[in-house]
Design a binder for these strands. Structure first.
Length: 853
RNA sequence: GGGCGAGUGGUGGAACGGUAGACACGCCAGCCUUAGGAGCUGGUGCCGCGUGAGCGGCGUGUCGGUUCGAAUCCGACCUCGCCCACCA
């Protein structure tokens, strides 16, 4: 059977028939299998964020994937060896929710959905290499999560620590970035989040904080770079050590270190504030304040973040009754605790400078503490009482009330104060980050088991890593959710009981599993060798293909997946496992398609648009094209299928002008006649020019992912061909060339119809079949793009007044003569004279006039 | 409160500082059809004048500025969206 033999069964455009036929044919030929070891062509790795197999693939999925497929197809035509894999992010909560609701085990539910999504994804006609597929919930995959964990443990990049964590009543422990909004709610279920103390596993993301701030070697959208920068939140300043003064409750001498970005204001520190959870609070609290302090701490502990942050922002706190010594001037200042100081940031303690910090000012006003101004503009009146903190920063500020440092500029004074403290061993320049280490522990069964065993027999064994050769630590086949709690693994004796690898005595397995963002932090390497059993990745292939050339996906992953992946890459690089330090060279964030109601698409809202219906009605090519034609790729917006008919019509017209150039519509009496006054030669020349211009435009738009204008240009070309159909021009080679280029340009966008049109053209010409998708991308001829005649707009004082057709390449003087001889122009020169003529070559002429003297 | 982005016809959207509204949807008219949710051709920013070819005015959230010329650059403001939010 040849493809062409049964291609000519009909002359009508029937997408369903064409699409299934060509998809089968491409599969049969293995056209999208990438030879990863082929080094004869330049390589190009195209990656789109893999999906969670929720089972409800919607039009939003297509909105990312279709253009990514177009990129892959276009690169192939350009001669690249393209790798475009697909996989599933298969661990995670929805599977557990389904299990609890319906009794279907997470694994079964997930794999069933994977199967369904594979089917749906195949209708798109994308060039995925399904041989490279990765499913993260399979032991062959998560085994390597465990392997990486053990390497991190060896390299001090993983550690266990008691930590206050965000706790969701439904989902257990959450990462900081999984807590959303001012209400502090769970990103998954929307429940209010509270704090709890638990022993947790962390990855040391902060080790690479500085390098993660450097995006100079990658081309990422600026908003993502900014978000990551803010998330990492580097602040420069100083650490300053205050000594505690002795009193009748304690001997003094304890040191309290604070972090400040404003060491210049040290003379203005009139009190100190510790976070309620600060470890020194117990030791320092004066006997008379014990009760007040204890009740404040309990209250702060009980209060959820929402109460602390948004209900009322009024300051609250309690004095410890102890005092500290300001290291710069020996002054005794009171020590307070207050919940506006966070235990997790900086040192969990601050020096309060109410005159120059809004929060401190508010607190001082509430507590009746003194405010002392130490920074002022040169010559500014200082006596007036302050009504708000003066936190501004400008160049003409000087220190005041600051002893020997008075008179120095704020910046210079700050440096001098820090230097003086450093000399005395009481301070030093310091940098602090908002970024915290990555909390990976999850109290859930449907994730990668953390491969450690707690030895019960011999306390000296402690936490024992599972040896590499015992990996993977497998999940049980079924979970018993009836056992209670969020994590059935805890009650699964077969899973939990394991001998200590060190002493052989009784031991308990860790029952926490890893955050699913661990899975997604390295999956692109696995695609290159999904079946490899000796290592997580094939180093040679990774070196050949990575970093990923083009990554596409949603901006919602700006500070999670996209940051963790960068961290993983740097960590693996330092451990000698990969050669690159950044995972994704170029990133593009497409916009998000919302439901017709303007809300995020979700099953529960009932606003999910299923692509299957549209594909059944219009065909995949129309749906592909429509998604790209709607608007700029980075924009998104509420879903509406208004306009899809126009795109479908376009494909039908393309079909007609390519396959039936000499036909004509019965309703068009003039159809076979040329427009008045245009010769066949001129029309043919114009057509050729337009075809090459379109090719130029389309080629440029590919470089910028500007699908909508690309398609508009193809529509214009098609409309032109339609007008010339049935005329003498349709018999000319120019028409044939334009039609041929149209099919080639259509190929990446609407692959099925392009393949069909191509095969019919080849058959008609008696040529042997070859796929349009293995043709080279055509190149436009610059000499054919230039016009020899142009419509020149004429402006008078910047307003359009006339246009005139002129030969291209006239000199300014020649143009001037033509312009000034125009009747319409002369009408404007009755009461005015020309002051100046602005020539914009190839664009327009603008006459600037002034009233006649 | 802070950061980022966006405001253009009835609709989706075009427009290196240079003819605003490409290309579509929708609508109107004509044609072709037994029929059509099919197809072809033409028209369509708003207002005014003209029988007509056409002519004029107004127009890119608001107000200013820069420029021969601004949807585009700058400043202030309004509205919407996203991100962050007591981060010292």
């Amino acid at each position: 059977m040849t493809a062409t033999a049964n291609a000519r069964t009909t002359n009508r455009y029937e997408p369903a028939e064409i699409e299934s036929r060509w998809q089968a044919r491409w599969d049969e030929l293995g056209m999208h299998r990438t030879d990863l070891d082929d080094g004869s062509r330049p390589r190009y790795y195209v990656l789109t964020m893999y999906d969670y197999p929720s089972g409800d693939l919607h039009i939003g999925h297509w909105f990312v994937k279709v253009p990514t497929d177009v990129i892959s197809r276009h690169r192939r035509m350009q001669g690249y060896n393209v790798f475009f894999p697909v996989g599933f992010d298969a661990f995670g909560l929805p599977a557990e929710n389904a299990a609890i609701r319906s009794g279907v085990q997470p694994r079964e539910w997930t794999l069933r959905n994977v199967e369904k999504m594979r089917r749906q994804l195949r209708t798109m006609g994308a060039t995925w290499d399904w041989d490279a597929e990765v499913i993260t919930c399979e032991p062959e995959y998560y085994r390597w999560n465990q392997w990486f964990f053990l390497r991190f443990l060896e390299n001090d990049l993983a550690y266990r620590q008691m930590a206050p964590v965000d706790w969701c009543p439904n989902d257990g422990v959450l990462a900081r970035e999984q807590v959303e909004g001012a209400d502090r709610v769970c990103w998954r279920c929307g429940a209010r989040v509270t704090k709890r103390d638990l022993e947790q596993w962390f990855f040391r993301t902060t080790k690479y904080a500085d390098e993660l701030l450097d995006h100079s070697s990658i081309e990422w959208p600026e908003p993502i770079v900014v978000m990551q920068r803010n998330w990492i939140g580097r602040s420069e300043g100083a650490e300053i050590t205050f000594a505690v003064a002795p009193d009748d409750s304690q001997p003094g001498g304890d040191e309290i270190t604070v972090f400040t970005t404003r060491p210049d204001t040290l003379f203005g520190a009139t009190f100190m504030v510790l976070a309620p959870e600060h470890p020194l609070v117990d030791r320092l609290t004066h006997a008379s304040q014990l009760q007040a302090v204890e009740s404040y701490r309990q209250e702060a502990r009980r209060k959820s973040e929402i109460d602390r942050l948004s209900t009322d922002r009024d300051k609250s706190g309690v004095a410890l009754g102890a005092h500290a010594i300001n290291p710069i001037n020996g002054e005794r200042i009171p020590i307070w605790i207050a919940d506006y100081v966070l235990v997790g940031y900086g040192t969990g303690a601050i020096m309060a400078v109410p005159a120059h910090d809004e929060r401190d000012f508010e607190f001082a006003r509430w507590a009746g503490l003194p405010v002392r101004r130490v920074v002022a503009r040169r010559g500014e009146e200082l006596e007036a009482a302050m009504s708000e903190a003066y936190a501004a920063h400008s160049n003409d500020e000087v220190l005041v009330n600051s002893g020997d440092f008075s008179g120095y500029s704020a910046n210079d004074g700050g440096r001098r104060i820090t230097a003086e403290l450093e000399r005395r061993g009481l301070g030093r320049p310091a940098v602090t980050y908002r970024l915290r280490d990555w909390l990976i522990s999850r109290q859930r069964p449907w994730g990668t088991p953390i491969p450690v065993i707690y030895c019960q027999a011999d306390p000296s064994c402690g936490i024992v890593p599972v040896p590499d050769e015992e990996l993977p630590v497998r999940l049980p086949d079924t979970f018993d959710y009836a056992a209670g709690g969020s994590n059935p693994l805890v009650h699964d004796a077969q899973f939990v009981n394991a001998p200590c690898p060190r002493c052989g005595g009784a031991g308990r397995r860790e029952t926490d599993t890893m955050d699913t963002f661990v899975d997604s932090s390295w999956y692109w390497w696995r695609y290159l060798s999904p079946g490899l059993t000796s290592a997580p990745l094939d180093r040679q292939r990774a070196d050949a293909w990575c970093p990923v050339d083009q990554y596409t996906g949603g901006a919602e992953h700006a500070v999670m997946h996209l940051l963790y992946s960068r961290w993983f890459t740097k960590a693996l690089n330092d451990m000698g496992l990969v050669s690159e330090r950044e995972p994704f060279k170029r990133l593009f964030n497409q916009g998000q398609i919302l439901g017709a109601d303007g809300e995020r698409m979700s099953k529960s809202r009932g606003n999910v648009q299923d692509p299957d219906e549209l594909v059944a009605r219009y065909g995949a090519d129309t749906v592909r094209l429509f998604l790209m034609f709607m608007g700029p790729w980075d924009q998104g917006g509420p879903w509406s299928d208004t306009g899809i008919d126009g795109v479908h019509r376009f494909l039908r017209r393309a079909w007609t002008v390519v396959l039936d150039p000499h036909g004509r519509e019965p309703g068009d009496a003039e159809g076979d006649r040329m427009a008045a006054g245009v010769s066949v030669n001129e029309a043919a020349d114009d057509l050729r020019r337009q075809a090459h211009r379109t090719l130029q435009k389309v080629t440029e738009d590919h470089a910028n992912f500007r699908w909508n204008t690309m398609i508009a240009a193809l529509m214009e070309l098609t409309n032109r061909l339609m007008r010339l159909r049935g005329t003498e021009v349709a018999q000319r080679s120019e028409y044939d060339e334009a039609a041929r280029l149209l099919v080639l340009m259509l190929a990446p966008l609407a692959p099925h119809i392009a393949e069909e049109l191509w095969s019919r053209r080849l058959a008609a010409a008696g040529e042997e079949w070859r796929s349009v998708h293995s043709e080279g991308w055509p190149e436009y001829r610059p000499e054919l793009v230039a016009a020899d005649q142009m419509e020149l707009p004429i402006q008078v004082n910047g307003r359009l007044r006339d246009t005139v057709s002129v030969p291209a390449g006239l000199s300014e003087i020649e143009l001037e003569q033509i312009v000034l001889s125009r009747d319409k122009v002369r009408a404007y020169l009755v009461d005015a004279e020309v002051a100046r003529i602005v020539h914009v070559p190839g664009r327009l002429v603008n006459l600037v006039t002034r009233p006649r003297a």
